[in-house]
Amino acid sequence: MNTAFAIKIENLSKLFKSQDRLAKAEPVYAVRNINMKVERGQIFGLLGPNGAGKTTTMQMLTTLLKPTSGKVSIAGYDLLKEPDKVRESIGYISQIGGLENEATAIENLVLQARLYGMSKEQALARTHDLVKHLQLEAFANRLVKTYSGGQRRLVDLALGIIHKPAVLFLDEPTLGLDPQNRAHLWQQVKVLRDNGTTILITTHYLDEADALCDRLAIVDHGTLIVEGTPEELKKNVAGDSVTIELSPEEQTAGFKILKDLPFVKDISIIKDKIRVYVECGEESLPLILRTLDGSTITIKTVSLAHPTLDDVFLNFTGRSLREN
């Protein structure tokens, strides 16, 4: 890899011909003119509702699906011209995984290693490394069909990284996992990132995406709507909110005073509370408290909230992601 970008996507599109002969529907763009770049060693999140084109994008990037148009380079290789080089450089874990149910984790892993050209000895050694590292010992010798969801997901991850890929694609890796398994999986993903692996991930869990992704792109209806670090994206929306509760008789007075403060972007009364939108909550909160104090207005409660990625999504699409 000779560039700083592990993934470069230019004008990527996928047009699906309608499969439904009765509906005589028009061809549908599952992905439309996506442009993005992912730096090496980053966790990059693709965020969007079901049907937004996240999985289709992943399948194109992992050589499973031919793009209708566009240019993609992965790990420095051209996706269409050097698919085998791309395949050697990437790992892919689909939503459904892909484990052979009638075999053990060890058997799955050894075969996978050998499909990447390792010798029998190398494959066994690498398998045992991963079993130890990902803590699969307790079940690695049982048939996969007996595993729990969390166990399966860890083996999926092991299969995806067995050849130490430069770029790893994870499609909804934590879907359906309990919080403990989610945390364990994310921990492993962070370790991979810290060791230099570039990771492209899709997820429905906004809090996860927020906490773990270095950069994010929001996709909807096959197009990329906005891209940036979680912080940048959230700065774009209304800003932080400070919610203040005053005694009922002082509320109107307090509202008048706060409304004229220069840093207040927006203000509204919600039931017995006043909500003030500001650029930076941490800086504004002391000023708000001091102003109200100086006017001898008594504050009953106060709280500060930062915008979430759901606010970002709402802002750009007019819909909440959580409703999906």
Binding site: T63, L64, S94, I96, G97, L99, N101, L115
Partner: peptide, 14 residues
């Protein structure tokens, strides 16, 4: 194909 084995193998350079 349904349980993902085929896709997983199609992503390898085999």
């Amino acid at each position: 194909m349904r349980n993902g084995v085929v896709s997983r193998m199609r992503v390898t350079p085999v």
